[in-house]
Computed example of a mutant assay.
Amino acid sequence: MSRSIPSAKAEGWSEFGQGLVWMTLSMASFIGMSIGSRELAATLSIRQVLFFRALIGLLVILALGRSLWPEVRQMKRLRLHVLRNVVHFTGQYFWTIGVVMLPLASVFALEFTMPIWVAFFALLFLNERLTKPRILATIGGFLGVLVIVRPGVGMVDPAAGLVLVAAAAYGLSLIFVKQLTGYCSPGAIVAWMIVIQLPLGLVAALTDWREVHVTDIPWMLLAGVGALSAHFCQAQALKRLDASVVMPIDFLRVPLAAIVGYLAYKEGIDLWVILGGAVILFSNYRAVMAERRQVC
């Protein structure tokens, strides 16, 4: 019996550590997807970008994920898959309207209210404990984002409400993914995402179709593979970590994206980005250490 307790603790920390690795890969994939999408948006409509991301994802699934189709054909939790993807796609649509109508700083500040929604929905649907470290990590991460983007006070705009709805939709979608990981593999969850969102994206793209060029193909691949990898890695992380642990870590995407923007597009990194990144890193470090002590 004396050796079983350390063994259980080691196994628990192993799961926790694996979850952090998957979340790191997810953040890197999201940044890759963002670069590909940004380059595509220079010549194509945003609706086309969403469609081609899903199309590339389908091609990858068909080429590499044939072992997933027996599980997909079982149609486990089909209603939940449909609900999750309708909610997620709706969030993408509202967020796009916000990007068009609002300053980007305001959009990012509003979008990163999502962890607050995740914590709320996790408490409501998953009965996850809202521990003090998780609350502090969420608050600290949100404050760090505000330091980086420094949104103005003039956000009284109907589009701001739509971005808040998008943030809530993303948060609810994440909770549905967490529920699905109890019945489906991460690969099957991603496959269903592609199967459901591809026709939704096609219908939307046909309303604003622009000419596609050969030079768009590399960016389609980066955006599509990045999106597929991002959601797969995120599902893997959610399989090992509570949703309210995953989301504060996701705040790190902001300073990481700032670094990539500097290297790829020569976008300036000022003192506010450094300070905000430090707040995010410190908040997540404290939360991770607190969770590690609970596991060990």
Rank of each mutant, 00 (worst) to 15 (best):
S2Y: 04
I5F: 07
I5N: 04
S7I: 07
A8E: 05
A10S: 14
E11I: 03
E11A: 14
E11V: 09
E15F: 13
E15T: 12
Q18R: 11
G19Y: 10
G19P: 13
W22I: 01
S26W: 05
S34M: 12
I35C: 07
G36Q: 08
R38K: 13
R38C: 00
L40P: 00
L40V: 01
A41R: 13
T43S: 15
Q48T: 02
Q48K: 07
F51A: 08
A54Y: 02
I56T: 08
I56S: 01
G57K: 00
L58F: 04
V60Y: 00
I61F: 01
L64G: 11
S67M: 10
L68I: 13
W69L: 10
P70E: 03
E71A: 02
E71Q: 04
V72L: 03
V72I: 05
V72G: 00
M75K: 05
L80R: 07
H81R: 09
L83W: 12
L83E: 13
V86T: 14
V86Y: 06
F89S: 10
T90G: 15
G91P: 01
T96M: 12
V99Y: 00
M101H: 13
V107H: 00
F108Y: 15
F108E: 10
I116M: 13
A119S: 11
A122T: 01
L123N: 05
N127E: 07
E128W: 02
E128V: 00
L130Q: 14
T131Y: 06
T131F: 02
P133Q: 02
I135A: 10
I135E: 03
T138D: 09
I139W: 04
G140C: 02
G140M: 01
F142C: 09
V145C: 06
L146I: 13
V147I: 13
I148V: 05
G152W: 06
V153F: 15
G154K: 08
D157T: 04
V163R: 03
A167C: 08
A168T: 12
A168P: 06
G171T: 05
L172H: 01
S173T: 14
L174V: 02
F176Q: 03
L180W: 01
C184T: 15
V190L: 05
V190T: 12
A191Q: 03
W192L: 09
M193T: 13
V195M: 14
I196T: 09
P199I: 08
G201I: 01
L202R: 09
A204D: 12
L206Q: 08
D208M: 14
E211V: 11
H213R: 14
T215A: 15
T215S: 15
W219Q: 05
M220K: 10
L221S: 09
V225M: 13
G226V: 09
A227R: 01
L228N: 05
A230R: 09
H231R: 10
A235S: 15
L238T: 08
R240V: 11
L241Y: 11
A243T: 02
S244L: 05
S244Q: 07
P248A: 12
P248C: 08
D250W: 08
V254T: 14
V254S: 06
V254A: 12
L256F: 15
A258S: 15
I259D: 08
G261Q: 04
Y262N: 15
Y262L: 14
Y262S: 15
A264W: 11
Y265C: 11
K266P: 05
G276E: 07
G277E: 12
V279L: 14
I280H: 03
S283M: 06
N284P: 03
A287E: 12
M289P: 02
A290N: 09
E291C: 06
R292K: 11
V295R: 09
V295Q: 06
